[in-house]
Amino acid sequence: MTGLIYKDIVALRKQLSTLLLFLIVYGGFCVTGVFDFSILGALVAVFGLTIPMSSVAMDDAAHWDRYAVATPAGRRGVVAGKYVFTLLVIVVSVAVAAGLMVCLSLAGLTETTLDDLVLIALSCGVLTLVLNAIILPFLLKYGAEKARVISMITFVVIFGGAVLLGGLAKDQITLPQPPAWLLTALPVLLGLLAIGSYLISYFIAQGIYAKKEF
């Protein structure tokens, strides 16, 4: 499995450097005040969703899975490798984005507190984990081309829903108020929900991939 993760990193090295450039450019925009620092958190979602999809697209183009399944890694290794790689991308993206935001904050370039900046990065990481939990089984079953549509629908539903809720709140439509304990425990609960859904997704993907024919 480590070989498969290493393969993803090496095969996507060019793209990873482009994304790093992306991060630096957006960091620059934040410094000049064009964007708010929270945009760096959103980049976590961009990286966490596009990198795994690109890796599957590259595998599809090379018909790599046919070879990988014939190695000792087998079907289970291919699925495990993709899930660990995706998790790695999210963790590294969160760490880089949080690190960058903290540095810029310490330099006095934002008034947002350090806690809030770290929370923004973590929230984006959690959301990306949930999105990947939905998308990865489709990616592994249908390949990148078909799964892209599912990914877009998921994205639209989640972000559309968030925008809708925001709009309702803005229009002062009374939404049911969650109890105070739930609000306090919400970050931990959302974190656990994301991890749980990622684990469930992993087992679903293993089941799907076990039936796949090459």
Partner: peptide, 17 residues
């Protein structure tokens, strides 16, 4: 093997498999 890989990288990947 992926087009972007070279034989040395292919070897490193397979050595782990």
């Amino acid at each position: 093997f992926h087009d972007t890989l070279n034989p040395v990288q292919v070897g490193k990947i397979l050595s782990k498999l």
